[in-house]
Design a protein around this nucleic acid. Structure first.
Lengths: 215, 215, 215, 215
DNA sequence: CATGAATGAGCATTCATTCAT
DNA sequence: CATGAATGAATGCTCATTCAT
């Protein structure tokens, strides 16, 4: 992960993230260690050593160790869920950018797959720690409800009306769609790394579509 | 979780698990705390306090804190995957106990759903910690490969031959089936606890079947 | 070390030492461990394990761990210094049992050498621990002053009068004699175990005698 | 012991030992406590309290408690045996700096006596702990064999050829010489502190010389 | 801004000792 | 007498955090 990618990841709301050389090294070391050993099992001295800075330097930039974690995870939560949706989503959909639910599923799957591929360690940290930190859970819920869920629902209702999707509750379709996408991603990145990506992506899309298509 | 349930959970290979009153309290306190705060963030003194025993007592029963964790998680890993499969699986299937893949899916879903419902905290610990402890990953892989994967594959091949299932690789069908089941369980127990269980179970089964059925 | 040797070692003033099987095993395990690792670094549980008894059993026989140490070392201190001297010494000497200082030196050297050879681990413990336990030091001083020093002095004065020994203070002759004997024993048992014992004993006797003989 | 003396003691091979105020206090407290109560019976919290530092500070300077011990004892072992010998010894002898074995004995006795007088607590620690720590024993053996024993032997052979010393094996003469010197030192510093030092030194030299002189 | 020595609370673990069985 | 589970104080050590330089 280079500086640019990192700053892009941690950037929220177009506010630029300015990080000094040292700060950047700290964050990258933290990501690596948190991902490998977990937040609670990583010591700030390890991070400092790996980052090549003094221990004190970490606390100059982040008031506490937890602040460092949150500074990494919170923007990631926002960016995991939000970007595609939050910004251009409604427009895209109502502009009929997606001609079918299948196109839409293909787009999210490909997009989220690429995101995880690029930022795997950060995503891993966030899935681990979200269980133990209420701030994360709250932010996640807010983002998900406000930006993802609502828009997702609208899209589904739209294609249900168009007769492409079965008459299932939107919640169920959302759950099964996301579940299948996340399942693919987890299988690929945590379990069988030698999977034929493109074929499995396509199979997953067909599986989802067969599962929810009106018949 | 009462004593009987606990001993049943930690029991492997019909070897009886005998636990003194105190030991049982320790394990139950540990499960509660590990589940709530994570292994690394739970101190042995907290466990002792919650269990109502002296700190030293923990170490009389478990050489290290990690031993305590493993004594909880390892049998759970075995019991999560193995029992239904390891013992009666082959027989059941080739005795045509399952008349269709749908019956089979219904059975696992209902069975695993009930298991998680009963032992949620332990299952949570195990999903959290499996990322950081190689012993767990190794055991999981072994159990999964030896007991689950092979049998699962045989069942799928059987129903593929019978013309019920689409001509997809068994690996893909397994992945999509498990993914959908686990996705339902996670949604139910971690996200929306007020879901209409029975309806969503049935929808998930239909989703899976539509996804993999020969057409 | 067998039971008899052990009871003989720990016996003082002809009071018989009765030890049960278990007690005996405890003492022997304690001697072995204290000698190997030192008193403070040996735990009662190690002793119990090596002795093949329960931890509680140790404390049934000895109120504290230190009591166990003292029960081993205190009789040894008495027996190291005292027996030859305390009982028959004066008589022997004034009965002219020793015809020369050389005979006397030869006798102590041979006697103490054999004692250490037989009870080396116990002697090692006592030399180690005497520095840290006042009771030991006090007993040692008492025994040494009352039983050894006085008699030793009488013998030296006797042979000085007979013209065999140089006109040095008895203290100095005692110091140099003991020093040379102890030096030989330490060299033999702690440093060069392959020494030619008999030859070095004789050389040491000659060295002492040349050093203190009247000339 | 002041800072300078301490740094001099711990210095090896002219590498300067730089110690902060706190570190110095830690080492001096450790020396005092180890000497008084023994290594195993001294707790790091006691050392910290006596040194007037936080307990953590000890572990910033020394990775483990044992490291602290070794950092004190190992240089002392080197300096106890080596300096006089290792550097100027051979030269001195073959330059006939010592005109007689007696001069040589007088020199070591006075030199080592002064060393122990100055650094008694450290020497005590080292004699106690050498029995339980293999590193110490190995270093001691190496130093003794390489630097002391060989040179000592050469000197003895030289004076044997000159006809001053009896025809005894060098090993025996070395043993008896060292034994007598160490015996004097132990008597003086551990047993009778009110001894007339100078007179007893001279008596010991005469005792040694009479014992080993050719006759 | 950066450093790294210092801190002291907290941690997992050990230990001598007790006591109900 | 013997046991061994239970205790809780103490131990060696770690860690996040502070602060003088």
């Amino acid at each position: 992960m280079d500086r640019e990618a990192l700053e892009q990841l941690l950037q929220v709301n177009d506010q630029e993230v300015k990080m000094s050389e040292k700060q950047q090294k700290i964050v990258m070391a933290a990501i690596e260690m948190f991902s490998e050993k977990g937040f609670a099992s990583t010591s700030t001295s390890e991070i400092a050593k790996k980052a090549g800075v003094a221990e004190g330097t970490i606390f100059r930039h982040y008031k506490t160790k937890k602040d460092l974690l949150l500074s990494i995870v919170m923007p990631t939560i926002i960016n995991t869920a939000a970007p595609k949706f939050a910004k251009s989503f409604a427009k895209e959909v109502f502009d009929h950018q997606y001609e079918s639910y299948e196109d839409f599923v293909r787009e999210i799957l490909s997009n989220r797959f690429a995101f995880v591929k690029k930022y795997f360690p950060v995503v891993k940290i966030y899935f681990q720690e979200v269980f133990y930190h209420e701030e994360m859970r709250n932010l996640f819920k807010t983002i998900f409800n406000d930006h993802v869920y609502e828009k997702f629902k609208q899209i589904i209702e739209y294609f249900k009306e168009k007769g492409e999707l079965a008459d299932l509750p939107a919640e169920s379709i959302i759950r099964m769609t996301i579940t299948s996408i996340v399942g693919l991603i987890i299988t690929r990145f945590l379990i069988s790394e030698d999977m034929d990506e493109e074929q499995e992506k396509e199979r997953t899309i067909q599986f989802i579509m067969n599962g929810v298509r009106k018949r």
